[in-house]
Amino acid sequence: MNFGLDATTAASIWATIALVIFLGIIVYFGVPKLITKMLDDRIKDIEAELAEAERLRADAKALLAEYEAKRENAEKEAEDIVASAREEAFRLTAEAKTSLETLVARRTRAVEDKIAQAEAQAVAEVRSRSADIAVEAARVLLQQQMAEKGDALVEQSIKDVAARLN
């Protein structure tokens, strides 16, 4: 059955007929629909994965923004803590300085009071000692005068008393 064709052409015709029959069988059994359905399913899967990836990207972006805000808040809070600690240190330094000045003034007054008290005590001791010396000098003087003029003074005193009584 060669129909006057050479072998190569006949083989090409039979190969073409076999291909057409094969394609007919594939179409009859619905292979293109299966392939189309499989491709459609794969497209849906890829679209779902892309949607999930986009959702995850949006979530990651939101999470990043949230952490950036938290970081900024933490930095601001740290700055506030440092500033308040600095203010507290200045306040405590000022209080300590004031307290020290008060303490120095109080101790200075106490020392001045002690000095004044010691001065007053020294003056009182000098006066007391001076009075004691004056009394002793008067006693010695009176003893000497009494030894020398004692009898004359007693007689004069008796005359004075008698004159006043009359």
Rank of each mutant, 00 (worst) to 15 (best):
residue 109 R to P: 00
residue 69 A to E: 09
residue 97 K to M: 11
residue 115 I to M: 06
residue 47 E to P: 00
residue 29 F to Y: 10
residue 82 V to Y: 08
residue 110 A to T: 06
residue 108 T to C: 07
residue 111 V to Q: 04
residue 86 R to E: 11
residue 93 T to L: 14
residue 36 T to N: 15
residue 94 A to T: 01
residue 76 K to W: 03
residue 115 I to D: 10
residue 52 E to M: 06
residue 109 R to F: 10
residue 130 S to M: 09
residue 119 E to C: 02
residue 88 E to M: 07
residue 103 L to K: 15
residue 78 A to M: 08
residue 68 E to Q: 05
residue 90 F to L: 15
residue 89 A to K: 13
residue 65 A to V: 04
residue 61 K to M: 13
residue 28 Y to H: 12
residue 88 E to S: 10
residue 101 E to M: 12
residue 82 V to T: 06
residue 57 R to Y: 12
residue 91 R to K: 06
residue 44 K to A: 15
residue 94 A to P: 01
residue 79 E to S: 12
residue 65 A to Y: 04
residue 80 D to L: 15
residue 63 L to T: 07
residue 23 L to S: 09
residue 27 V to R: 09
residue 71 R to M: 10
residue 99 S to T: 03
residue 129 R to Y: 12
residue 116 A to R: 03
residue 122 A to D: 09
residue 48 A to L: 06
residue 118 A to Y: 04
residue 22 F to K: 09
residue 30 G to P: 01
residue 37 K to L: 09
residue 25 I to S: 07
residue 117 Q to K: 07
residue 123 V to Q: 11
residue 26 I to P: 00
residue 28 Y to Q: 12
residue 124 A to I: 07
residue 110 A to G: 00
residue 94 A to Y: 04
residue 31 V to R: 04
residue 101 E to Y: 08
residue 103 L to R: 15
residue 39 L to K: 11
residue 78 A to H: 02
residue 50 L to N: 09
residue 105 A to L: 14
residue 66 E to I: 02
residue 101 E to Q: 08
residue 44 K to E: 14
residue 66 E to M: 05
residue 106 R to M: 11
residue 99 S to V: 03
residue 102 T to W: 07
residue 62 A to Q: 03
residue 33 K to R: 11
residue 108 T to W: 09
residue 29 F to M: 01
residue 74 A to Q: 08
residue 27 V to Q: 13
residue 50 L to T: 04
residue 43 I to C: 05
residue 47 E to D: 10
residue 50 L to V: 03
residue 76 K to A: 14
residue 50 L to H: 02
residue 73 N to W: 04
residue 86 R to C: 01
residue 88 E to I: 00
residue 47 E to V: 01
residue 130 S to K: 10
residue 86 R to V: 00
residue 106 R to I: 08
residue 20 V to P: 02
residue 39 L to E: 13
residue 96 A to N: 06
residue 103 L to H: 15
residue 24 G to Q: 05
residue 61 K to R: 14
residue 61 K to T: 12
residue 124 A to M: 13
residue 58 A to H: 04
residue 121 Q to P: 00
residue 53 A to Y: 11
residue 98 T to W: 13
residue 37 K to E: 13
residue 62 A to R: 06
residue 41 D to A: 07
residue 125 E to D: 12
residue 59 D to P: 05
residue 38 M to W: 08
residue 68 E to G: 06
residue 39 L to R: 08
residue 44 K to D: 13
residue 21 I to Y: 08
residue 95 E to R: 08
residue 75 E to R: 02
residue 94 A to I: 01
residue 58 A to M: 09
